[in-house]
């Protein structure tokens, strides 16, 4: 008896999960909009503290990593296992680079006393506390998704290597790609809202 498999249902399930994620981050974006509207001057000044250069570099890193994982689906469809693994490895390296940048970025903020609960941040006023609270909460939740994505993609790489994912059975690889694009999608909106609009 052949094992029943339904790739469309698998993808549908992944999309349903992505919808819950969109609403989770969407809620945070609404909180950001309201606080920004009520504290526009403080948000304006606080955003100048953020490093646009690191933000831009991380944007480019995530966009490239999204392309490489999208290409890995094409590679497995064309039965090119080696290229699939190479493209997934590049995605992993780029994800790690994103996290390294994030580490230095957060480190610099914390060193300057700009972290939730710090007394020097409290001295700056209510608006700054809200801005940096949202900055750490939203980029932190996003960074957490990057880590989960790296574990997810790592697991799929093992499956590809063991031929558990192949040219006629790649739903899981496709789903890991969808998840990674979601992470990219969220960053596409985080980047201008925190780093650019000052």
């Amino acid at each position: 008896m052949e094992l029943h498999r339904d790739d469309t249902a698998s993808k549908l399930g992944m999309w349903l999960f992505i919808f819950t994620e969109l609403l989770l981050f969407g809620g945070l974006f609404i909180v950001y909009s309201v606080f920004r509207y009520k504290n526009s001057q403080a948000f304006h000044l606080a955003a100048e503290e953020l490093d646009t250069f690191i933000g831009t570099v991380n944007t480019v890193i995530l966009l490239i990593s999204s392309m490489t994982i999208a290409m890995s689906v094409t590679a497995i469809q064309k039965k090119n296992k080696k290229l699939t693994l190479i493209l997934l490895s590049i995605t992993q390296v780029l994800a790690l680079a994103f996290m390294v940048n994030k580490y230095f970025e957060w480190g610099a903020k914390i060193e300057h006393g700009l972290f939730p609960g710090s007394s020097s941040l409290a001295d700056l006023g209510h608006g700054d506390v809200l801005f940096f609270g949202l900055y750490f909460a939203m980029t932190g939740l996003h960074a957490f998704h990057i880590i989960v994505g790296m574990i997810f993609i790592g697991w799929i790489m093992v499956y590809v290597a063991k031929d558990k994912q192949s040219h006629d059975n790649y739903a899981l690889l496709e789903n890991s790609g969808l998840y990674w694009h979601l992470v990219d999608l969220i960053w596409i909106f985080l980047f201008p809202l925190f780093y650019l609009i000052i």
Partner: peptide, 28 residues
Amino acid sequence: MEQEKHHIVGYKVYIYVLLALLVLTGLS
């Protein structure tokens, strides 16, 4: 069970999309 036919997207399409995304990033 018969799987539905899948569309294979060429590598070039993804490269063009990435270039568009990078241009839009630079623009913003």
